[in-house]
Amino acid sequence: MKNFNQTKEEIILISEETDRNYWTTRLGVTAETLKSAIRATKSITLHHITAYLNQQNSSQFA
Rank of each mutant, 00 (worst) to 15 (best):
T24K: 06
N21S: 08
L34S: 00
E16A: 11
K35W: 00
Q60K: 12
K2H: 11
A51L: 12
Q55Y: 10
K42A: 08
N21M: 05
N21W: 02
Y52M: 06
T33F: 00
N3E: 06
S15W: 02
I49C: 10
A40M: 12
Q60P: 07
E17R: 11
S59R: 12
T25P: 00
T30W: 08
F61K: 14
A31E: 15
T18H: 11
K35Q: 14
S59G: 02
Y22L: 06
Q55W: 13
Y22N: 00
E32N: 15
L27A: 05
T50D: 10
S58A: 14
N5L: 15
Q60M: 10
S59K: 12
N54G: 15
E9Q: 07
E16D: 15
G28P: 01
R26I: 03
A62Q: 11
I49S: 01
L46D: 10
F61S: 15
W23Q: 04
T41I: 00
L13Y: 10
K2T: 07
A31G: 13
H48F: 10
V29T: 01
Q56D: 08
T50I: 15
W23N: 05
R39W: 01
K42E: 14
I38F: 05
K35I: 08
Q60T: 12
H48R: 07
I44V: 07
A37P: 00
T18F: 13
N5G: 15
Q55S: 14
V29K: 00
T33S: 07
R20D: 02
S58M: 10
T7K: 14
E16P: 00
S36D: 10
I49Q: 09
S59C: 09
Q6I: 15
G28L: 04
E32R: 12
T41P: 06
E16C: 09
E17S: 11
S58E: 14
I14E: 01
S43F: 03
I12A: 07
L46C: 09
E9P: 06
R26F: 11
T41Y: 03
A31I: 03
R20A: 11
L13M: 10
T33Q: 10
L46Y: 15
W23F: 14
I44T: 09
A62P: 08
I49D: 02
K8C: 03
T25R: 04
A51Y: 04
Q56R: 14
A40W: 04
R26N: 14
L13D: 10
Y22K: 02
I14N: 04
A40G: 02
L27D: 01
I14W: 05
I11E: 01
T24S: 08
H47V: 09
H47M: 06
Y52F: 15
T24W: 01
T41G: 03
L27N: 06
L46A: 10
Y22I: 01
V29E: 04
S15N: 10
T24A: 03
T30L: 07
Q56L: 13
L13C: 09
I12M: 00
S43E: 04
T25M: 03
H47T: 13
S43H: 09
H47W: 02
E9R: 11
L34T: 02
M1T: 12
N21A: 10
S36T: 12
S15C: 04
W23V: 06
R26C: 07
N57K: 13
T30D: 09
E17H: 12
A51I: 08
M1N: 03
Q6S: 09
H47P: 04
